Amino acid sequence: MRKPLMIARQGRKPTGLLGQVVARIMAKETAPENDIAVELLALEPRDRVLEIGCGHGHTLAKAAALAHQGVLSGVDFSWVMHRYAMRRHRALVRAGRLEFRFGASDQLPYEAGTFDKAFCVHTIYFWTAPLDHLREARRVLKPGGRLVLGFRPAEDESFRATFPDQVYCIRPRAEVVELVRGAGFEILDVREPGQDSRRVVFIVAQAAGRPGASSTPGRHGPGR
């Protein structure tokens, strides 16, 4: 059954009380994929890690146990999710282990070459200009830094039939691979772990060459 536009829009950017409910449901549904993304990051104790579209922040908190001497950052453009993550993980925030920023992933509020690792799961559907977002991920990663991108591809017909294309831009696997390459990454691995009826692709990539463009921090913006 196709999801109502109102629910799909809440999936993109949770707002108000309904947004909190939708976000918590989605967090439970997507927890297995988030766990796979963290595994594919191959975290080291001192890594600086960025989650793009961090939402509730639970995945970053799990990653903090692995990168136990590092600093983990999350950015999201939903005030509802930003406030929730800050409140839910306040002990780790106070300890300086986690930080959450409100901002847009096509204008990340970090300097170039800040992070060793970055990941993003189930967010690319909402990027109307995906190269802008992927180039920003490349910019804030150190040379050789790792990106893990998780998404359900257009080849998953049940997924395409469920989510309205007015909100979700669901791209084929090969197209996303080429977008990642075009943003300045080398592809290390592309895999689809078996997950029953949920077809999920994970791209593992490495930032090539020197960090891109300016080292000026990105501006906060309205879109993700």
Score class of each variant (00 low, 15 high):
P45F: 10
Y110C: 10
T123F: 00
L41H: 02
R48L: 11
R101T: 04
R224Q: 08
R97G: 02
Q10H: 06
A183W: 02
G184S: 02
R94W: 00
I7L: 15
M6T: 08
H68W: 04
A8T: 13
R87E: 14
V201G: 08
D76N: 11
H220C: 02
H68P: 03
R83P: 07
A61F: 04
G145D: 04
V201M: 05
E175L: 14
T128L: 10
Y125F: 12
A67I: 07
P153A: 09
I7T: 12
P153I: 08
F151H: 14
K3W: 12
G221E: 02
P45V: 12
V71S: 14
V80W: 01
R224Y: 09
A8K: 15
R210I: 04
Y84Q: 10
G57N: 13
L40H: 05
R2A: 13
S214D: 13
L179T: 01
E33Q: 05
A63T: 07
V177L: 12
W79N: 11
S158H: 11
G16R: 13
P164T: 00
K28D: 10
A207V: 01
A154D: 06
V176L: 09
R135S: 05
A137S: 13
K117V: 04
T30Y: 08
S105Q: 10
F115H: 14
Y168N: 05
S158L: 11
D116Y: 02
V200T: 15
F185Y: 01
A37Q: 07
P4A: 00
H82Q: 10
L149E: 04
R173V: 09
A64V: 13
A27P: 00
D106G: 03
L18S: 05
V180M: 11
F126H: 14
A64H: 06
E192W: 08
E157D: 09
A112N: 10
D165R: 12
D116W: 01
S73N: 15
W79E: 13
T59K: 03
Y84L: 14
H56C: 04
R97T: 07
V21T: 12
V204T: 15
A183C: 03
L149V: 05
E155K: 09
D196F: 05
V38W: 05
A42P: 00
I124E: 14
K117E: 06
D76W: 04
A129T: 13
A8P: 15
P32R: 04
G57W: 05
E111H: 15
R46H: 09
D132Y: 04
E44G: 10
P32V: 05
G19K: 06
D116E: 07
D116H: 09
A91V: 06
D116R: 03
A63D: 07
Q20L: 15
E155S: 10
L50F: 05
R24N: 06
A174I: 03
L72Y: 07
A85G: 13
S78C: 07
R97H: 01
A129Y: 14
V148K: 05
R146V: 02
A31S: 14
G182M: 08
G144Q: 00
K3F: 15
T162D: 01
T114V: 07
L72G: 14
L92E: 13
V21K: 15
S73C: 15
F102Y: 11
L92V: 06
R191V: 11
E157P: 06
Q195D: 03
E175A: 15
G144M: 00
R198Y: 11
L18D: 02
F159M: 01
G103K: 00
P130S: 09
P4Q: 00
G145S: 07
Q206D: 02
G103H: 01
